[in-house]
Nucleic acid binder design. Structure first.
Lengths: 341, 341
DNA sequence: CTGAAAGCGCTAACAA
DNA sequence: TTGTTAGCGCTTTCAG
């Protein structure tokens, strides 16, 4: 048998000859408990190293002090940085963070949503997969009035939950405009799948900038693939198979920007003289490669904090008051100019 | 009032005219429940979208299905990568992961440990701060027989918990030996604080390699500071203030190796011709900088998985059986040779 | 194979 | 200001 060392409020009630209710209240700083008893109770609690069993108090209130977070992968730069901010802020407000990784698989995301609900998280934050188009697995949170916030990777179509995202349209526009102003007459674009708001918006920004600068849009110079190094390499081969090369490349993430740069270097295409490159995310590697790559800073920490702030507001607001605050929050981005463009 | 939509086993019992006990057992695949009722129950459960309330079942069993993880910071390369592996593996075994960041502050670590205990985690994994020397805040886990596994950053002195760590001594040795074999006669070392097992062991490896290759050990060429870019820059200034420069530098993390490399480049010191550099961790940036940096791969994913494996074993083994498996697990490291050394 | 009932630790009416 | 009591939803003896 598992022997028990954990002490409960019952133990401390007995030791002090008080009712358990009084002890509970004292521990929770209830206003109408005398300072004297509060002091006594807290001392005894310290003495026996009492820790509130949050499973029990959560069960009572039918909600835990855990916040769920579902993201594609912890180790991606943007998300790792966002999580750091998210967890620190949540902790300051007394919440724990439960993390689940979808690995960009909608099925996994669904499973995790269910698990999060099972542990009765007080709220849920989601950066969804590239391929999530069906969001019904989150309905249960809506139905039960559990605050739900999407950030970064958000539903493309309407879904009745709070949304926090970077200004990807603006980012795409700035990146492309920067290339245009540097003199590029022909600009290729490596986009990800358009099922993802990120790529969709950056692409829209790209198109708008081309139009504004009266540059030609060519279907053969735009690519929609998952932005892996392998895909980027394949595209680079295609792009530089025969002249004229595009004078600029706007890659919708830094990994592919780096791949393009390395490919160009290997082919003896001078960057930025013969080819200008702009990436997206300000991944630490872009600052360190030669030449360093111009890219778009998204301030992942700030995005994370905005998401938490929104969640806390929902948490405070209580049930059935959500309608009013569904306006998406759009956080600013910034072009970081470096030598590559 | 918060209206309720969540259905419980009571609901499904009522709907099926069964006892709640039967429903509970059916849902848990209890052997002596007829297949017929199991089927009925599960169908009804699906129909009403039942999700087990793990707070309640946890309370009953006095333990949750959550595993706690305390680390210095999610966004550090090593830990981000380890977490990815950890969470994926835990999920496969039906556990959730609760993450807390100590920000390398022992006080915070203590607070988190307490919070983790409060939510009655089934087990706890810890990579402690650089400065933790007092581990008593983990005693409560030991006393209550909650599996506790330290990984990567582990107690320097004996503490009765399972330990998983990389072979830092070997890593330090290989790094230094590599410099020696490349012809460096004088090798400086940027270490972190020796209160941390990582730096202590790598430093010991450094010293051992010097001895083996009959190279001089000079106090002025060894530094013990937190390995931040600022500190590394300061040290670089000191190191290259006057000749003769050391011919090799072994930096105990990649961030400072990168800083040293950039400093050398700025000073016109040719790498590797005039100065050879080896880092530690195989941070993605080391592969991309020019010249790419030789470093020690720690296989963070593998370390994470070993830690989980150990934890799961403890979880299965049940109470009071821990003594036997306290032997530390030491995972292999590998020197990744690149152009810098 | 199924049911009745107790209780995990805590909070919140309701009383006093 | 404090005590009594009734559960929160689930698992698990103990009885059929």
């Amino acid at each position: 048998m598992q022997q028990k060392h954990e002490s409960t409020i019952v133990d401390i009630a007995r030791a002090l000859n008080l009712s358990i209710a009084t002890v509970s209240r004292a521990l929770n700083n209830h206003p109408k408990i005398s300072e004297a008893t509060k002091k006594k109770v807290k001392e005894q609690a310290d003495a026996v190293e009492y820790r509130r069993n949050t499973l029990a108090s959560g069960l009572r209130g039918s909600r835990s002090n855990n916040i769920g977070l579902i993201i594609p992968r912890v180790s991606m730069y943007f998300h790792a940085t966002a999580i750091t901010a998210i967890q620190n802020l949540l902790h300051r407000h007394g919440y724990n963070l439960i993390i689940g990784q979808s690995n960009d698989a909608p099925e996994m995301e669904k499973e995790l949503a269910s698990a999060m609900f099972s542990s009765r998280v007080a709220g849920l934050m989601v950066a969804s997969t590239f391929y999530t188009t069906d969001y019904t697995h989150f309905d249960v949170f809506i139905r039960n009035d559990i605050p739900l916030v999407f950030f970064d990777r958000v539903p493309v179509d309407f879904y009745p939950a709070q949304v926090i995202r970077g200004d990807d349209y603006q980012g795409g526009f700035m990146a492309t405009a920067h290339l245009a102003e540097a003199g590029c007459k022909t600009i290729a674009h490596l986009s990800g799948p358009l099922s993802c708001n990120l790529y969709k918006d950056r692409y829209a920004g790209y198109v708008a900038a081309l139009r504004q600068y009266k540059l030609p849009f060519k279907k053969e110079w735009v690519f929609f693939n998952e932005l892996t190094p392998a895909n980027a390499t394949r595209i680079a081969q295609q792009l530089f198979a025969r002249r004229p090369y595009p004078q600029g490349v706007f890659a919708s993430n830094d990994t592919s920007a780096i791949t393009i740069l390395e490919y160009a270097r290997a082919q003896g295409i001078a960057v930025p003289e013969a080819l200008r490159i702009v990436g997206y995310s300000n991944d630490p590697r872009t600052a360190i490669i030669s030449p360093p790559i111009t890219t778009v800073e998204q301030f992942p920490g700030r995005v994370g904090e905005e998401a938490v702030t929104a969640l806390l507001a929902l948490l405070k607001r209580g049930p059935r008051k959500r309608e009013q605050i569904l306006t998406p929050v759009i956080t600013a981005v910034e072009l970081v100019k470096r030598a590559s463009a």
